[in-house]
Write a protein that binds this DNA or RNA. Structure first.
Lengths: 194, 194
DNA sequence: GAAACAACTTCACAAATGTGAAGAAATTAA
DNA sequence: TTAATTTCTTCACATTTGTGAAGTTGTTTC
């Protein structure tokens, strides 16, 4: 089996067992896709075309606010799924750009194919529920963190939980994701190093 | 039909159609429950026993942090479901207290009964997916709001989107929910009124 | 390798929010 | 209704973070 699919299945198995039939469906519909760094694979304003699984690499979601400033709403590294679920599922134009920060290896499935596979089995529905729950908790925790932690504490927490992200992507994206001014983040980093 | 169930079904119909059979299942398993104000119906440390639908009234979720301070993580009014989904579904002890701030009318279903009804139909699964998606978006937006908005802007937004909450529950809960010191919130309210 | 560009840091100052105490107002209990 | 309790406001001052400019470092491109 292709190593990318091994990574995908290992990732899915963290939540549920995958019957052989579903593995075959995955291998039929998910297509490997390599992108070079600094590419937007799903632009805002368009209905997302693919459901993406990051095999390796770093990606982010961002939108441009009224002042023309980029706001990074999510940063992820592989292995994991990374899609604007809401717009993908409801077939509505996304308000976010899905941006490959580094070179990335993906496995992706077309939205129309998801419609097909969704009809096939209960496995996918159960998995969807689990993924949504997991994602919901992540967002909830992020909201709580931003409600209760200082800018410095948020940075320290990210550093502790996702050191790879801090080491591998530009600080300006991290600052935006954490809701900290880049200059302030520099000062915080400086204070922490003393 | 009992008026409480009418409110429940109208609420569910915002997302999906409810086949008659599912309505009957609901009426069999959901039980009316009235609580007086200032009661904790699901305490932290215990596995949530019920899936709750608020017919009317105001509720919040809170936990107590290391400093012994209450952190309000969610505030809701009816009609809507309000349960610690994650702990309810995984049967793990909750880290939050489900608190009826005012007198409340609920419809609630026991966890074991959810296990039974879950096996009955695809309707419930589809509905669960929709609710999770909706909740996920809400949490995501809350995280973004706390990342990009000032304390004053967060208060104004809550006031605009949920005026009833501000008018009907103690400000200290709102301050905690918004991540603002009660004294600072008073000042902000004062500045806004000038 | 030099030039051009982007990313990061540093600084002085400004603005927003936190803190804790004291008092006013509102609510609840007796 | 009065007393007790809780909630809310106000204040002076401390702390944190934002702002914009300037300079440094690093990276890309030709």
């Amino acid at each position: 089996m292709n190593n990318n699919f091994k990574i995908l299945f290992d990732y899915i198995r963290l939540l549920i067992d995958i019957p052989k039939i579903d593995q075959e469906i995955c291998q039929e519909y998910f297509k490997p896709f390599s992108i070079t760094k600094d590419t937007i694979i799903e632009p805002s304003g368009k209905i997302p075309e693919y459901h993406n699984f990051i095999v390796s690499g770093y990606m982010r979601n961002f939108y441009t606010n009224e002042q023309g400033l980029e706001i990074t709403t999510d940063i992820n590294d592989g292995p994991r799924f990374f899609t604007s679920y809401n717009h993908f599922m409801h077939k509505t134009p996304s308000n976010e750009n899905l941006h490959c920060i580094t070179d990335c290896e993906l496995l992706r499935i077309k939205r129309d194919d998801v419609d097909v596979t969704a009809k096939l089995g209960i496995t996918q529905m159960k998995y969807t529920i689990q993924v949504l729950q997991q994602q919901l908790e992540k967002n909830k925790q992020r909201a709580i963190d931003h409600t209760t932690l200082s800018a410095q504490q948020r940075y320290v927490k990210l550093q502790k939980e996702h050191p790879a992200i801090i080491q591998n992507i530009p600080l300006k994206y991290i600052a935006s994701y954490l809701g900290i001014n880049p200059g302030s983040l520099s000062r915080i980093r400086n204070e922490l190093s003393n």
